[in-house]
Design a protein around this nucleic acid. Structure first.
Length: 688
RNA sequence: GCGCCCGUAGCUCAGCUGGAUAGAGCAACAGCCUCCGAAGCUGUAGGUCACACGUUCGAAUCGUGUCGGGCGCACCA
């Protein structure tokens, strides 16, 4: 069978039809359209594909749209897979597909391929390793993990080669704060810190939880005595510098705690099915001098220059993204004696990358790091194994040569990158892209996606439930912002525990006959599914006001609703004593065209039509970098299935032809639902 | 002050590159379990898509402005 005939489900059919019409338009009217819209009609009576192309042509051809549509309609009738073409409304071209044909193709699992060449790096989670993860971090990790699953090669799609990274800021101020906490507030030295961590471990206490409270205490402590505030802040900076330098007890304490907390984060995320391939650390970016290499590249290209005047005097700066330089000229003038002379006064808006003290800012380090990601820095990390997952190793960076290189290539050779980062960092992210552009890496800059999302707050109700006393001002707002400094927020592990416990209560009530271990497993799948779905159903720009009551609801538009539909479908096969696979094979022989065309069959056909859109929706979700699109689609599939389930009673169906089709319908619905949920990291339990 | 995001049903949100009577869930009300498990289904009610202009055959969608809310604009990360 030629490839064109093989891949002809919704997405493929759409592509074929678009190409055909484009050539028809050129042939007949000499018109070329940049894009040709093919949409899903609002009602099934209008067919499966609708083309508003006649409206578009009306103004160019100075003809009534309906007239154009009537001219085009007969020309489209010959397209393969199209059963009929109608002109509707003021000039819509509505296509009806050959239902019997589509059903057989889908039963054989023919679908458009999604994927491509190149290595893509997805970076997410990136929690400061100085305290427990909270809901906001979960949104980040779940978004990133789902997106990685959408891209990755699997049974359904060739996908892309990908690497999943979790950037570890193990030498930042937040880690410094926790070090100040254990040393100054708790009076520990290195040996005592080791003992303390051992004690926590032996008494089954979580290090990240202990740090959560300590971090809050330190943050308060800095400002608790105005007379000592300056001194205490100095202690903080001194501690930071010692950590950055390395090779001293302070740095060792920082490393012990940061690594210990990081291991806890990995445990927390693993509970949700989230794994990483590589953990690049800031300490190596410093010790391997990534910045100096980047710095030279940037100076050579004139992107980075020394400011000798104005408020940024003594700093190395670059033009701020999206802002014209403050001076009259187009940026800095020619370089003179190692310094660039501003063409027309200093650019006061410039972004500082190196402070007058000689230290590098966050954005500076980030530029170096991103040159590495694209393989443009000309140097690499050294790699060491860090954590063994069931199916693969998670690596970390190190500054000592190990002779080990994951997959023989490491990770710094991306063709495209996706950074899952809070939208409060839109500006610095834009600045990094601007630096790439300035260095002449236009293409890389284009393939740099900041997968941004609005932060997660808490509803007033949930904040009060956590024992937080609200001010009147806070009560009036739609959400309360979480604060690590105040130790205020919903810790990830606590939340996961509550989700699973809520599911467990239901499972125990519904399935007392099951073994304890199986009930536990089912509850975990449901609790995790509910949590992941809850954080995925909102589009990225939507600020989530987290509320326990909403999250713990398992009715309606939730993960458990979708899981339930898949479980119901599976139950049908169990009770019928038929394998889903066999049902899909069975539908190949037999003629269902008439049945599918009937009024009753249309409600069955709608299930197939919904299921046929998997590739289309996946492509759309990848293009928009928006897992919420898939989450909503999963819900729609489940809803469609529940409709179908109530309308057609399969097991009692006496007509064999009809029963075969109904069984195949349930099989397809379940297959696609399981797939889509899988990309969202949501499993389907054995029973519900 | 400048930049970015947002304003859609009582509440929480969808609405793709403009297109057919603006859609879900929750909450409310009325029904449906001797029938593939009711974490489900059916029905009712609920909207001047913040507002005003503009572009267009056509605007929730694009443009400008106003009002209201959020977030950024450090020699912090």
């Amino acid at each position: 069978m030629p490839p064109l005939l093989r891949e002809r489900m919704y997405r493929k059919l759409q592509q074929t039809i678009q190409a055909k019409i484009q050539s028809l338009l050129v042939e007949r009217y000499g018109v070329e359209l940049a894009t040709l819209v093919v949409e899903l009609p609002p009602k099934i009576e209008f067919g499966e594909m609708a083309l508003p192309v006649a409206f578009e042509l009306a103004k160019r051809l100075k003809k009534a749209p309906r007239m154009i549509a009537q001219e085009l309609a007969p020309l489209l009738a010959g397209i393969e897979g199209v059963a009929s073409v109608d002109v509707a409304g003021a000039g819509y071209l509505n296509l009806k597909l050959d239902r019997g044909d589509v059903v057989k193709r889908m039963a054989a699992d023919e679908h458009a391929a999604v994927g491509g060449a190149g290595f893509r790096l997805v970076e997410h989670t990136s929690i400061n390793p100085n305290k427990a993860a909270h809901v906001g971090h979960l949104r980040n990790a779940i978004l990133g993990d789902s997106f990685a699953r959408m891209l990755k090669r699997d049974e359904y799609k060739p996908g892309w080669e990908i690497g999943v990274q979790n950037y570890i800021d193990n030498t930042g101020v937040q880690v410094a704060d926790i070090v100040v906490g254990v040393t100054t507030l708790e009076g520990m030295d290195l040996d005592r810190v080791k003992e303390w961590m051992q004690e926590l471990f032996e008494s089954n206490q979580r290090l990240d939880y202990a740090c959560w409270d300590l971090y809050a205490r330190v943050s308060q402590w800095y400002d608790s005595d105005p007379a000592l505030a300056v001194e205490r802040k100095k202690l903080r900076i001194d501690t930071l510098h010692k950590i950055e330098e390395g090779n001293n007890d302070t740095a060792t304490i920082a490393d012990l705690i940061a690594t210990g907390v990081l291991r806890r984060h990995l445990e927390t995320m693993e509970r949700l099915g989230i794994e990483y391939d590589f953990l690049p650390r800031e300490s190596e970016i410093l010790h391997l001098d990534f910045w100096n290499t980047a710095r030279e590249l940037m100076i050579a290209k004139g992107v980075l220059y020394f400011e000798s005047e104005g408020k940024n005097k003594g700093c190395w700066v670059m033009r701020r993204a999206g802002v014209a330089p403050a001076g009259l000229g187009d940026g800095p003038g020619p370089e003179v004696n190692g310094e660039l002379t501003p063409s027309d006064g200093p650019d006061e808006d410039a972004k500082i990358l190196v402070r007058s003290s000689g230290t590098v800012t966050y954005v500076g380090k980030d530029i170096a790091y991103h040159l590495w990601k694209f393989g443009l820095l000309g140097k690499d990390f050294f790699y060491a194994p860090f954590h063994q997952y069931a199916s693969h190793m998670c690596w970390t960076s190190t500054d000592k040569p190990t002779g080990q290189l994951p997959d023989g290539k490491g990770f710094g050779h991306a063709d495209a990158i996706y950074n899952v980062i809070d939208s409060r960092q839109d500006d610095p992210q834009t600045q990094v892209k601007e630096a790439l552009r300035g260095l002449g890496y236009e293409a890389e800059s284009e393939r740099y996606t900041h997968l941004n999302y609005a932060f997660v707050g808490l509803t007033a109700r949930t904040a009060e439930e956590l024992g937080y006393t609200l001010t009147d001002e806070e009560r009036a707002k739609n959400f309360i912002e979480v604060s690590g400094r105040k130790g205020f927020g919903v810790k990830a592990d606590d939340l996961i525990d509550r989700m699973i416990a809520a599911a467990r209560t239901e499972v125990d009530a519904r399935h007392p006959e099951l073994e304890d271990a199986e009930r536990a497993e089912i509850a975990k799948t449901i609790g995790v599914g509910a949590l992941r779905f809850f954080l995925l159903r909102f589009t990225r720009t939507t600020l989530i006001a987290f509320d326990f009551k909403d999250a713990l609801s398992f009715d309606g538009e939730t993960g458990p609703y979708a899981q339930y539909a898949a479980v119901r479908a599976a139950n049908i096969f169990r009770k019928a004593g038929v394998e889903a696979e066999a049902a899909l094979v069975a539908v190949q022989s037999g003629d269902y065209a008439a049945l599918l065309a009937s009024e009753e069959g249309t409600s069955v056909w709608e299930m197939w039509l919904a299921a046929s859109r998997v590739s289309t929706v996946l492509e759309q979700a990848i293009a928009a970098a928006e897992p919420a699109i898939l989450a909503r689609y999963a819900f729609q599939l489940a809803q469609q299935f529940n409709n179908f389930y109530h309308r057609h009673h399969i097991l009692t169906e006496t007509d064999e032809t009809r029963k075969t089709l109904l069984l195949a319908t349930a099989a397809v619905a379940r297959r696609e639902l399981v797939r889509v949920l899988g990309w969202l990291g949501i499993g389907v339990p054995s029973a519900m």
